[in-house]
């Protein structure tokens, strides 16, 4: 069982408290009616399915209830960092330099 850091609670807690919520940084278009069928299809269904660092959404569903984002390595299943919803995806180099 993974330990996950909730950026709102600022606490590292067991995976049981959290729910996965799909890939991060896919914004709902401001006006979907302007999108072509292909663009709308891509928004609905097309995901990156990365082997490596993946930006994804989690919800602290059995805790504070907030949605947040995480960078996780899909190969090692290791969380690299978590950050609040709305924040930009952290740059990996800055992240490594900070370590």
């Amino acid at each position: 069982m993974l330990l996950i850091h909730c950026p709102y609670c600022d606490d590292t807690l067991p995976e049981l408290e959290f729910a996965y919520a799909g890939e991060a940084h896919i914004d709902r278009p401001a006006d979907p009616s302007k999108l072509t069928d292909e663009e709308w299809r891509d928004f609905l269904f097309i995901r990156t399915n990365v082997k490596g660092v993946h930006a994804e959404r989690w919800r602290h569903i059995n805790g504070c209830g907030r949605f947040f984002n995480a960078l996780r390595d899909t190969v090692s299943d290791r969380f690299l960092t978590t950050y609040k919803a709305g924040e930009a995806r952290p740059d990996m180099q800055t992240l490594e330099a900070a370590e």
Partner: peptide, 13 residues
């Protein structure tokens, strides 16, 4: 409720 929270928190904060 989860779906409503999702939209409220992440699309229309």
């Amino acid at each position: 409720l989860n779906m409503m929270e999702d939209y409220l928190q992440t699309e229309w904060p």
